[in-house]
């Protein structure tokens, strides 16, 4: 069976799944709107976690939180299920498809064969929609892909039961209750306030403080860890920032698009100015990536190079701090 589902590509998987599922249920919400209301923007350094043998930084909220916050703030109710066995997970998925209900799935990327080899890491927080089953293959709407695709039963089971950090355990989710009318105004203000609070939090590993922390670490890495490791770490930061799904500049451009849309809905011109400012900050993140890549491209670098990119991050931290303090007052 095939559910009449419209696939629309998005930058980020979680926003895209939410936006596409909302559209299926009769509500047109853009990807930036989902991201902004769900307070997706963040910067965080996770010192206790290593991925690919390098420290982890993230430019976005924890997996699942964007949809949860979006739903709470707009009055949508989501059902989430995890499963102890693959059989149960498959049965519940099939049941939903029979009922003409497309569902979101959390999956691991490593065994997603339609991704290029170098993108297939053990990353378990990817999201997709299953919207039908034909000739034994599940019909897949992966939001980061231009077109829909399909996976065999075995292939889908593998990605649903990937192991490691954030193991999905068959995690399936879909909205079950909707408001009569989507009230965006209050939701937007809540979303913005939350992001401002997170980004200026007095915690060393969250928000602008975390950016400063990483800047400090970068200065130390070459002497402490050696150039090879320092470059590996630096490369991972850039990858997290510019990974498929970020929309460029560590989600700062998507946030700019959100603020622009929000300025129209709230009839608040100041938000439009703020949109321009975050776009410029996004450009600074891109500049940082360019200069960082010059360092790790040759695997040989002077200490000066590391200090320079660290300076760039310190500047970004200052600008983002001023930005989010101002943004808080604008709404």
């Amino acid at each position: 069976m095939e559910i009449n589902f419209t696939h629309k590509q998005s930058a980020h998987c979680e926003n895209g799944v939410v936006s596409n599922l909302m559209r299926f249920n009769g509500f047109e919400v853009s990807e930036p709107m989902v991201f902004g209301i769900g307070s997706g923007l963040l910067f965080s350094y996770l010192p206790f976690l290593k991925v690919n043998h390098a420290p982890v930084v993230t430019y976005r909220a924890m997996p699942g939180t964007i949809f949860n916050r979006f739903a709470k703030r707009t009055g949508v109710k989501i059902k989430r299920e995890k499963f102890s066995t693959a059989q149960k997970a498959k049965a519940r998925l099939d049941e939903n498809l029979e009922k003409n209900n497309p569902v979101g799935l959390q999956v691991g990327v490593y065994n997603l064969l339609y991704f290029p080899e170098e993108y297939r890491f053990h990353f378990n927080a990817h999201n997709m929609v299953v919207y039908g089953k034909k000739e034994g293959r599940y019909l897949i709407s992966d939001p980061v892909m231009e077109e829909v695709t399909s996976l065999s039963e075995k292939e889908l089971e593998k990605v649903r039961f990937a192991k490691g950090a954030f193991a999905p355990k068959g995690h399936m989710y879909y909205p079950i209750e909707f408001p009569d009318k989507l009230e965006l105004k209050k939701a937007i203000v809540k979303g913005i306030k939350h992001t401002c609070k997170d980004m200026t939090a007095p915690v060393p590993i969250v928000g602008v403080k975390a950016i400063r922390k990483i800047a400090k670490l970068i200065r130390k890495w070459p002497a402490k860890k050696g150039v090879k490791t320092a470059n590996h770490y630096l490369g991972q930061i850039v990858r997290m920032q510019e990974e498929i799904g970020t929309g460029g500049g560590g989600f700062r451009y998507i946030y700019g698009a959100f603020l622009q849309e929000a300025s129209k809905i709230l009839e608040n011109d100041q938000l439009s100015t703020m949109s321009k400012e975050i776009t410029q900050i996004g450009d600074l993140w891109r500049d940082f990536a360019v200069d960082a890549s010059r360092i790790y491209k040759n695997r040989s670098a002077t200490e000066d190079g590391y200090n320079k990119v660290a300076d760039q991050l310190a500047t970004i931290a200052d600008k983002e701090e001023a930005f989010f303090k101002k943004l808080k007052k604008v709404v």
């Binding site: 170098e118 470059n231 590996h232 991972q236």
Partner: peptide, 19 residues
């Protein structure tokens, strides 16, 4: 604001290749 598709970006591709 609008969207545009990209075939890739060197600073990221180099980081991926290195990884």
């Amino acid at each position: 604001y609008t969207t545009e598709l990209s075939t890739g970006w060197d600073p990221k591709t180099i980081a991926l290749d290195n990884a």
